[in-house]
Write a protein that binds this DNA or RNA. Structure first.
Lengths: 211, 211
DNA sequence: TTTTTTGTGTAGCGACCGCTAGAGAAAGTT
DNA sequence: AACTTTCTCTAGCGGTCGCTACACAAAAAA
């Protein structure tokens, strides 16, 4: 396999064009980004876009995958690498504050904003599903922390996950409204004050994790 | 004045029609709501809409005023009526949890969602300005609380206001994503755990406010 | 070179957008 | 009754939407 393609080769770099499309969808959302916007930013004609990426909807799906693997990957890394639920959640929020305000690309989170006020129900639902799945992942990590004795026994993992998710979504909105990274880090500092701590004489797992 | 109108009277109730328009804009946002949607829901023809409300943009402006005076009025009431900054902010969040999930009308906050991904820059900026103004109002009330000794002296009112605003915006997003009132109230419970308390021997103003 | 295969550019499709001209309908005024 | 004023209805304007037919260009294969 991997034999040489016959016919005329495409005159643009597919990855570069995809990244341009990602930026457009990120900044203006799915619906407000027109094919005309896309072709202008990607530097190609409409037929080239449709030949390389399918229709607008398929291109958006591919953009979502690219986003999840790049700008949106910090959450998964934090959950995988941090030793405690608290450290994981705090790192998620702190990296969000950084990424959401990073210069050079649109502010905020694409998954939160790109399908708001979208008249294509499948797209709106797809991103909603993803947001709720992210919060469920938070809950799962928190539940793990409760089992390890890092948090009080009575802690409701789903509630705490929703709280972290709400702060996360608030950070995204505020980054779009002009808040700076320092502004958002102060918000994270305050948000983490709400974190429930296991009582002094709690299980050994918490001590092991911090040792 | 107030002489009887000459000519044919309009065949619909203006307030009822305006409320229908409000619901449409609230649910689908400014841009995704078409004039065709509006006329269908309002039960009138396009020329009647334009005669009674001006163009789509002017109608939206009037909807914003109506929203601020009805569904969006709870924030101002909480700030005006509660004796302490903490009580005011907690009531804002708690009433938000209730209103955002109330059956019978769209979920979440119109000011937060209706101009997201809007290609009319004046509209997007108008609502952004309103959101930031709301947070500035929070900051002002918190600053007042600091002056009254309710909060530690070093407290940054702007940071705390942004934190409350972030939670508020998160509540709105989550209500749109299907969270129930109980879900959001648990988030508010957690959020208020972050509230800074003045130390035990702090100023007399705090004692006076709670007495 | 000729043939085959594939990408690119022009040009435009039907559908919907916000909006409105113009004719007729329904009220008050005389 | 006739006249004036205002609203409502039908129909359709110019513009943009997502998308594509078609002719041409540019590469590998024969």
């Amino acid at each position: 396999m991997a034999t040489k393609q016959r016919g005329r080769p495409r005159s643009f770099d597919r990855e570069t064009a995809l990244e341009k499309a990602l930026r457009q969808f990120w900044e203006h959302g799915y619906e407000a980004t027109t094919v005309s916007d896309l072709t202008r930013e990607m530097g190609i004609g409409a037929p080239s876009l449709y030949a390389a990426f399918g229709d607008k909807r398929t291109l958006f799906d591919e953009v979502l995958v690219r986003y999840a693997g790049s700008y949106g990957a910090f959450g998964g890394r934090a959950l995988a690498e941090e030793p405690t639920a608290r450290a994981a959640m705090e790192r998620v929020l702190r990296e969000a504050a950084a990424v959401f305000t990073e210069p050079g690309h649109p502010h905020g989170c694409l998954v939160i904003h790109a399908a708001t006020n979208c008249t294509t129900p499948e797209i709106e639902q797809s991103l909603r599903k993803q947001r709720n799945a992210n919060i469920a992942t938070f809950a799962s990590r928190i539940q793990q922390g409760i089992a390890a004795g890092e948090l009080p026994e009575g802690t409701d993992a789903a509630d705490l996950a929703r709280y972290v998710g709400a702060v996360f979504q608030g950070l995204s909105q505020q980054s779009r409204d002009g808040a700076t990274r320092e502004d958002l880090e102060a918000v994270v500092d305050l948000a983490m004050r709400a974190w429930p701590e296991a009582s002094a004489g709690a299980g050994q797992a918490a001590r092991a994790a911090s040792g």
